[in-house]
Write a protein that binds this DNA or RNA. Structure first.
Lengths: 189, 189
DNA sequence: CGAGGCCTTGACCGCGGTCAATGCCCGTGG
DNA sequence: CCACGGGCATTGACCGCGGTCAAGGCCTCG
């Protein structure tokens, strides 16, 4: 149940299984139905989620009611509204299981305790932050001054899983375009 | 010369001046002329920069030769191509002093040494990362599905310094629009 | 005082959004 | 197991935002 998490941590830093088993119980298990919501925008996000199987997405509704997807977390990855987790301010995003999913989750309090007492967890948090930052910056490059066709091609090149696995409606909201435009782009290939 | 840096660190964590003075020499001083380049895109960024006075910007040229600004670092802030600093891959951005500036800079090697041996520096790095992440995510919200007028209004509300201090050409490249459009937007108020 | 860069404005145009219609797929219940 | 309904994908017609290009005025700096 916790082995994917162990592998994740063991990849980022060095930890033996015995040590891991001592604190693994802080990470609780949950089963999610398709489309189940883990967090609503406006709530404070005080948990980290680790995806065992399935897929989470972060999205929000803007003023016009348009749905905008910001991030996907697939199996073997962490996902959360990090901004809210860091600042304890209301989250801008909803967190939703796109597919039937199995996850582990940990409280912010427990996690901070671990961060101080377990060097491996501190290293993992640093890594989560660094990767989250790098991913965000890539998206900025992609949005700033690139047309929709380039954005789609970038997605094809670097995140093909998203294209093959998720419905067009959600892909479009991730690219910041309408499903109509995405459909036309794909026909141009 | 190092007092602004001391204040920065002292704000994020607790440190006494004596301790600070022991390692402050790792942060070297430099004087920059207006428009001077600190880093060219394609080089590996192995330094952190702290702005004592003036202003740095990060920007790159895309395939069509259009200039896109990603970030500004004003006095009292750190600025660097964090992605390249973290991964040691070639930087996507140029780093340039927009105005005559005074900065401190520290090598990645020295900084990593400090990060391990000085808890305050470790805390500062964590804070730099968290703030950089949060700032990036805000820009994503702003680019994804918002029109140019909203982007400008957001800038007026949250980063008025940029508007009052920097030339329109650079502001436009930060917003991902042309100077022509920015000019028209401003006339609409 | 001259030259070059920046800001502004007008004319034009094309990309991408909106709206409507159609067809397809898939899940659900009889 | 089949029939139905609703959501998703596609496509056409239309339009408006924002980009491009050209021209003119102003300010700055050499």
């Amino acid at each position: 149940m916790h082995s994917a998490l162990f592998e994740y941590i063991n990849e980022k830093t060095t930890i033996d299984r015995k040590k891991f088993d001592e604190f693994a119980h802080y990470f609780k298990f949950a089963n999610l139905k398709k489309k189940e919501l883990l967090l609503k925008q406006g709530q404070i996000c005080d948990k980290l989620f680790f995806v065992n199987s399935g897929c989470l997405r972060l999205y929000h509704l803007n003023e016009e009611g348009k749905e905008l997807t910001r991030y996907f977390a697939f199996e073997g990855k962490f996902g959360t509204d990090l901004t809210s987790f860091i600042t304890s301010e209301p989250a801008k995003d909803n967190i939703q299981a796109i597919e039937k999913s199995e996850i582990l989750f940990v409280n912010k309090k427990d996690f901070q305790h671990l961060k101080i007492n377990e060097p491996s967890i501190n290293a993992v948090y640093m890594d989560i932050l660094e990767m989250a930052y790098i991913t965000s910056v890539k998206r900025i490059y992609n949005f700033q001054g690139e047309d929709t066709l380039k954005r789609l091609k970038w997605l094809m090149a670097y995140q093909p899983r998203i294209l093959s696995r998720l419905p067009n409606k959600i892909i479009a909201s991730y690219l910041g375009i309408t499903p109509y435009t995405l459909s036309r782009l794909k026909s141009k290939l």
